[in-house]
């Protein structure tokens, strides 16, 4: 039985008449990395702001480790480390100064502050930058300082709002590794609109659109259980019927230029295809397994309903 660390029930949030979140309910279990996915303006940031206590919910309840964010805000906030979309940094403070201040704000006792600052600096790769002014650091390092700030009090729940926006590919990879490392000690809610990020770092994915939850599944189940498709290219001209005749192939799609997309039954493997290709000398020179990626799913879910809405 896993314990629900964050419980969001029936949460709604209005900005004047605009409804940003609509009756959203979900939970975050201990030791889980939850990817929060959605197109721009879907309500991701608003949800994070409500969970972290920066915005009051219009309706519904949020509780963190059993503490209601409205009724017991201090206890609830103590359980959370929050990195907003724009890291809340003081540009004219040095990294050490800033982190010490954050540690004190999170009520870490004075004697333990130095140890906590050293720990997060090591975790976030900031050992060399302690005395530099935050304003002079590159965007990637500022982001690291932002993450360091969120985990300095060792909270059970870490909320990261688009932590890799605006970084270069190497920095993105480093931040992702950092997030994955965080997942071993903390429960993490990660919001992003970068799909591969979710696939590589998260245990579970939630897609929201227009403030509503439209998909919720583990990333593992996302990677399996769907139709397996293979894209092949043949030098010889072969009729699609010949391909569908092969054992295990459900149907074939002609892509032209000697290319086909073959759909296999869920647990079939394409070796029968290779055997027939070799036997009949089709000149198979390309064989690419295609998985239904999160991207397809995302586009399917978000676009499909948009069309339905029209």
């Amino acid at each position: 039985m896993t314990e629900a660390l964050v419980q969001v029930e029936n949460l709604s949030r209005y900005y004047q008449n605009h409804r940003a979140i609509n009756h959203l309910s979900f939970t975050l279990n201990a030791g889980e990395v939850l990817g929060f996915l959605g197109p721009n303006g879907a309500g991701k940031s608003t949800t994070m702001q409500v969970i972290s206590g920066n915005l009051a919910p219009s309706e519904g309840e949020v509780s963190i480790a059993g503490h209601d964010i409205i009724e017991a805000p201090r206890e609830a906030k103590r359980q959370i480390g929050y990195l907003p979309e724009h890291p809340p940094l003081y540009r004219d403070a040095s990294v050490d100064e800033y982190l010490r201040y954050c540690a004190r704000l999170h009520r870490i006792a004075r004697p333990q502050v130095s140890a906590a600052v050293d720990r997060v600096k090591a975790q976030c790769g900031l050992q060399e930058n302690g005395r530099r002014l935050i304003g002079n650091l590159s965007k990637g390092y500022q982001q690291r300082v932002g993450i360091a700030q969120a985990i300095i009090h060792n909270p059970p729940v870490v909320i990261l709002d688009e932590p890799t926006v605006g970084l270069d590919p190497i920095q993105i990879r480093e931040i992702r590794e950092l997030i994955r490392a965080l997942g071993s000690e903390h429960s993490v809610i990660l919001s992003t609109h970068i799909l591969s990020e979710v696939q590589t770092t998260c245990d579970r994915v939630q897609i929201i659109r227009a403030g509503e939850l439209i998909y919720n599944a583990s990333t593992e189940s996302l990677n399996q259980g769907h139709e397996v498709s293979v894209r092949i290219a043949l030098r010889k001209t072969v009729a699609a019927e010949a391909l569908t005749a092969i054992d295990g192939v459900d149907h074939a799609e002609t892509l032209g230029d000697g290319r086909f997309r073959l759909f296999f039954a869920a647990d079939a493997s394409p070796d029968s295809l290779v055997i027939s290709a070799v036997e009949q000398q089709w000149g198979l020179y390309e064989l690419i397994p295609e998985q239904q990626s999160l991207e397809d799913l995302f586009i399917e879910l978000t676009q499909h309903e948009e069309i339905a809405a029209k």
């Binding site: 920066n54 201090r74 206890e75 929050y82 999170h106």
Partner: peptide, 14 residues
């Protein structure tokens, strides 16, 4: 403007 007020509001403070 800086967004750093979030730091104070997210901390366990009134």
């Amino acid at each position: 403007r800086n967004g750093s007020l979030t730091l104070l509001i997210s901390a366990p403070l009134g």
